[in-house]
C-alpha cells in the first residue's frame, strides 16, 4: 500500500527515528529548524565578542591560552551549526545576511557587557551551564545533522563550564577585592542566564509544535528549573550568593523556588535595546567586511591554479 510522504514522516517521528537531509519533511518543520539552528549558530559567533574582549587582558598566560581555546571553540560550534543548517537547503551567505540585517536573532545573553575578568568566570559557569542544560536534549533532536552537531558541541561545552567555575572559585577564595569582583559578576549574570531558557511555557507559542516534532524535548520552564536545581548547590561551593531573596529549597518537591524574572528586560533586549545590541552587530559586520578581500583573494588564487592545471 502506498503511504504519503507526510505519513512516512509522521511514522519516523513516532518511532523516534531521525529525519535526514534528503527526506521529505513538512515545510513548517524545515522552516522551524532553519530558524532555530541559524539562531543557535549566530549565538555562537556573536558569543565570541564578549569573551574576545578579555583575551588581551587575561591575568596569566595560562588563563589567556584557555580563553583563546574557548573562543576558538565558539567559532567551531558556529561552523558545525551553519553546516547543519545548510543541509536544509539554505546557504551560508543568506544566513549571514539575515544576521547582519537583523532578520534572524542570536541569544539575548550576548547583549550584556563583560565589565571585569570575573565575567569570564560567570559566563563559563552560568551562561555555558545554561547552554548545556538547553543543548543536551537537542542531542536527541529528530533532525539528524542538528543532533550530531549538538553531540560534538556538548562534549566541548563541558570544558567551558568547568574553566568558568575554576575562575570564580579562584577569585572567590582570593583577596576580599577578588571575592567582591566574583560576587558582582554573578549578581549581574544570574538573571540573564535564567532568561536564556526563553519565555515561560504559557507565553511560548512555538514550543508545542517543536515538541510534537521532537525538535524540542522539554519545556522552557522545565529546563530552567533543572538549571536552578543544579546551580544553587554549586554556588555554595563557590562561596558566592545568588541575587534572589526568594530563592529557597522546597523540601516537599525537592526543587528550588525562585523569584519573578523581569520579562520586560528580556523583551527590551530582544527588540534591540539591550546594552550592547548595536555594538555586537556593528562589530560583526565590520569583521565580515574587513575579511572580504581575503575571501576574494582565495577564490582568485583557486581559479588561477585551476587555469594552470588544465
Amino acid at each position: 500500500m502506498e503511504t504519503s510522504p507526510q505519513e512516512q514522516f509522521d511514522a519516523l517521528i513516532a518511532a523516534d527515528q531521525r529525519i535526514e537531509p534528503r527526506d521529505w519533511m513538512p515545510e513548517g518543520y524545515r522552516k522551524s529548524l532553519i530558524r532555530q539552528i541559524a539562531q543557535h549558530a549566530h549565538s555562537e559567533i556573536i558569543g565570541m565578542q564578549p569573551e574576545g574582549n578579555w583575551i588581551t587582558r587575561a591575568p596569566s598566560l595560562r588563563r589567556k591560552a584557555i580563553l583563546l581555546a574557548k573562543v576558538q571553540d565558539e567559532a567551531g560550534h558556529g561552523l558545525y551549526l551553519y553546516s547543519a543548517a545548510e543541509t536544509l537547503g539554505v546557504n551560508r551567505d543568506e544566513l549571514l545576511d539575515a544576521l547582519h540585517a537583523g532578520r534572524q536573532r542570536y541569544s539575548s545573553i550576548f547583549n550584556y557587557p563583560t565589565l571585569t575578568w570575573a565575567d569570564m568566570g560567570a559566563i563559563g559557569w552560568l551562561v555555558d551551564g545554561a547552554a548545556i542544560v538547553n543543548q543536551v536534549p537537542i542531542c536527541r533532536c529528530s533532525y539528524g545533522p542538528y543532533a550530531r552537531a549538538m553531540v560534538r558541541i556538548c562534549k566541548e561545552e563541558s570544558f567551558h563550564q568547568r574553566q568558568g567555575f575554576e575562575i570564580l572559585h579562584t577569585l572567590s577564595h582570593g583577596t576580599p577585592e577578588q571575592h567582591a569582583m566574583a560576587q558582582d559578576a554573578v549578581d549581574r549574570w544570574w538573571w540573564p542566564s535564567l532568561m536564556m531558557f526563553g519565555p515561560p511555557d504559557d507565553a511560548s507559542p512555538n514550543s508545542a509544535q517543536s515538541m510534537a516534532w521532537k525538535i524540542k524535548r522539554h519545556s522552557n520552564d522545565d529546563l530552567r528549573q533543572r538549571f536552578v536545581d543544579m546551580t544553587v548547590p554549586q554556588a555554595g561551593v563557590l562561596g558566592l550568593t545568588l541575587p534572589d531573596p526568594d530563592l529557597r529549597l522546597n523540601a516537599e518537591t525537592g526543587h528550588y523556588e525562585f523569584g519573578e524574572i523581569d520579562w520586560a528586560e528580556f523583551k527590551e533586549i530582544l527588540s534591540g535595546n539591550g546594552p550592547c545590541n548595536r555594538q555586537r552587530i556593528e562589530r560583526r559586520k565590520a569583521a565580515h567586511a574587513e575579511g572580504a578581500w581575503v575571501r576574494e583573494a582565495a577564490v582568485a588564487y583557486a581559479n588561477k591554479r585551476k587555469g594552470t592545471a588544465a
Binding site: L79, S83, E86, R295, A298, Y301, A302, R305
Partner: peptide, 11 residues
Amino acid sequence: VGSLHAADATM
C-alpha cells in the same frame, strides 16, 4: 563528520 566551505582542496 560534517562539511565546510573553502576555495580549494588545500584550504
